[in-house]
Simulated assay, not measured.
Amino acid sequence: MRRDIVSGELPAGSRLKTQELAQRYGVSINPVREALHQLSGEGFVLLSRNRGARVRPLDEHFVRNIFDIRVLIESYLVRFAIEHATEADLRQMREIQRRIDDLVGDQVELDRLDEEFHGVTYGRHFNGEALAIRQRHGQVVHALAMRYPASPARRVTQNAEHWAIVEALEKHDEAAAVRVVEQHARGAERHLLERLRQGSTTPKSF
């Protein structure tokens, strides 16, 4: 269902009726209801007592809102990482990033490694709610990235920003860390908005 929402098979604003979805996916009603609640939590579905479930429009307004929150949360999380990231964490981040540097063309693996990199960066933080919000929004961003994959130039920039995050953590440079995570998020936002406007889609299974 997530795939069909992102690809446009289930259009923005369309009603999501449990009986029809159960027939579409060949399952019973209960798994459909569970999926709708999960997708609501991830931001793909709007649930209303009066109007039922609808596909959320994945438009520019929605993307901007997500990245505004992402900038605030990641700036907050990285300040904690400056003081609490261990040498083992930094070694793991370097190893993950080397694998990202060597990766060619596999968007699914790229997204998995990207999330692993940031998971190590922020994983020691005590605020589970902030981490949960970041993860939930990250699922939306990664899903959109499947439809609007990063250009080669953007990937080069992303890689450089990841290395800059590692360097800032190594130096315990809070100002640099905050600056680069903000730059990282805003760069991803600009690129995704540009792709949305261009409509250059490359749907893939995930």
Score class of each variant (00 low, 15 high):
Arg94Asn: 06
Ala145Trp: 01
Pro11Asp: 05
Ala177Gly: 05
Ala85Ser: 15
Glu170Gly: 07
Gln19Phe: 06
Leu72Phe: 11
Tyr148Trp: 13
Ala81Asn: 04
Leu192Phe: 01
Val32Trp: 10
Gln38His: 11
Met93Arg: 07
Ala132Phe: 07
Arg49Val: 08
Arg70Ile: 02
Asp111Ala: 14
His191Pro: 02
Gln19Met: 10
Arg155Leu: 13
Val140Pro: 01
Pro57Ala: 07
Val55Ile: 11
Gln19Thr: 15
Ser75His: 03
Phe67Asn: 03
Ala145His: 15
Val141Leu: 08
Val63His: 01
Gly41Cys: 05
Arg136Thr: 13
Tyr148Thr: 05
Arg179Ile: 00
Arg195Gln: 14
Pro11Ile: 04
Leu39Phe: 03
Leu113Glu: 04
Glu189Met: 14
Arg179Phe: 09
Ile82Gly: 05
Arg197Phe: 00
Ala12Asn: 10
Leu36Ile: 09
Leu90Asn: 07
Glu174Phe: 00
Gln19Ala: 15
Gln158Ala: 12
Arg94Gly: 08
Met146Ala: 07
Val63Thr: 06
Val27Arg: 14
Gly119Thr: 11
Asp173Trp: 09
Met1Gly: 09
Leu193Gly: 02
Leu36Ala: 08
Tyr25Met: 10
Phe62Cys: 08
Ser200Ile: 12
Gly138Arg: 02
Ile133Trp: 02
Pro203Gly: 04
Glu129Val: 14
Leu90Ser: 06
Val178Trp: 02
Ala12Arg: 08
Gln139Ile: 08
Glu174Tyr: 03
Gln158Thr: 12
Glu34Ala: 14
Pro152Trp: 05
Glu60Tyr: 00
Ala188Thr: 11
Gln183His: 12
Arg51Asp: 14
Glu129Lys: 12
Val180Cys: 06
Val156Arg: 13
Leu77Pro: 02
Ala35Asp: 14
Pro11Tyr: 02
Val140Trp: 01
Arg155Gly: 01
Gln139Asn: 12
Asn30Gly: 10
Gln38Ala: 14
Phe67Tyr: 15
Glu170Met: 10
Asp102Ser: 14
Glu87Gly: 12
Arg154Trp: 06
Gln158Tyr: 09
Gln92Val: 06
Asp59Leu: 04
Gln158Val: 09
Ser200His: 10
Leu36Tyr: 05
Arg154Asn: 06
Glu109Val: 14
Ala132Ile: 01
Pro149His: 05
Gln107Val: 15
Val78Asn: 03
Gln198Ser: 10
Asp101Thr: 13
His37Lys: 15
Met93Leu: 15
Glu167Cys: 00
Gln38Tyr: 10
Arg79Gly: 12
Pro57Thr: 09
